[in-house]
Design a protein around this nucleic acid. Structure first.
Lengths: 179, 179
DNA sequence: ATCAATTAATCAAACCTTTGATTAATGGCA
DNA sequence: TGCCATTAATCAAAGGTTTGATTAATTGAT
């Protein structure tokens, strides 16, 4: 038992993936351990970075990660239809709608009906919103730089390139995406 | 205007990042475009894959992505303290607590007080839960393989290695993490 | 010109996540 | 032994996300 089945209680955040792969492959031989490790590690990395950025930069400003993403899109590309904001931030229209209600309440975002299409809502930033996102983004990017500094310049470029390859081929496997 | 400031309304999911970097660097010269692109692309990739896996594999089974992650941890390492489940799945104890309430209601997970430490709750899978996660994981991994097939074997190994380097050095920048 | 199909935003309901607080249990130190 | 600090799970409150439904507006075909 002690050699055959290592006690799950001894596992920690870092050791889990190796254990998981070993156990899974043993139980389900047709499982692809490399694919498993790839998705697990990618999800882990993104989660860790997002949690760090959100808790160190955005929450202290009263924002959420999602709120920051919407503010960022509107800052750069606004005023913009809510539908487009949803697309550019990778969220659903319903999520943007609920989120914008919060951001509007906080005096960061403005909403008005698009005169050219009465179905559509145009989202813009208030003066305060513009100032706040410009400031926050600098702090955010400084933190991004701290993370990116873990890799050298070549590694960064490689990582980006591989991730871009991964995402751009999503159409090939008909990946589900938000509407 | 037409050359100087491309209309935000022409942007789509794929073109946004280039536009965002160009615009940001122009407004805030000290911004590091590579770090920006790295974090953006990583978050995008993880988001796309998770959304695809969740909507194609887990939601049809009545599960959420988070539910799947908890079931997976308990399947492999359980029975296990809730605290440990939280650590291995990268969630907070409060999140696991709320999630397990749902999974227990669905007859997938069992909870009992740990006789050795009355504060702790031991989480295990029901027979049905065990069967369900084993089946779901095979479908899940097949989908993971579809994603991973976008890259060749060497690229996969490189990507994993870079992501692992990125995450393991989180301690170096004192990254915030869940308690 | 009319109608049906499509589109945009929001709603409803359920679930997931966060922080800090709460309650109960444990461990270590004096 | 007793007390205090720490620990574990849950609670409370607020907010974020999903799907399908709803309401209103637009578009395209006849």
């Amino acid at each position: 038992m002690s050699q055959e089945q290592p006690d799950g209680e001894d596992l920690d955040f870092w050791s889990f993936i190796d254990y998981a792969i070993e156990r899974t492959v043993r139980q389900l031989p047709e499982v692809d351990p490399l694919a498993m490790r790839l998705v697990f590690t990618l999800h882990r990395a993104a989660n860790m970075i997002v949690y760090d950025l959100e808790s160190s930069v955005h929450r202290p400003r009263g924002w959420s990660w999602a709120g920051f993403r919407v503010l960022f899109v509107i800052w750069l590309a606004g005023p913009l239809e809510a539908k487009r904001v949803a697309e550019l931030s990778g969220m659903s229209r319903a999520a943007v709608s609920a989120l914008v209600a919060t951001l509007e309440r906080e005096g960061l975002v403005t909403k008005r009906r698009d005169p050219r299409d009465r179905r559509a809502v145009l989202l813009g930033l208030t003066g305060h919103g513009t100032q706040a996102i410009a400031e926050a983004f600098q702090v955010h990017n400084a933190r991004e730089q701290a993370w990116a500094a873990t890799l050298d310049e070549d590694e960064r470029a490689t990582l980006i390139s591989l991730l871009e390859k991964l995402t751009s081929h999503s159409v090939r496997i008909d990946a589900r995406h938000r509407l």
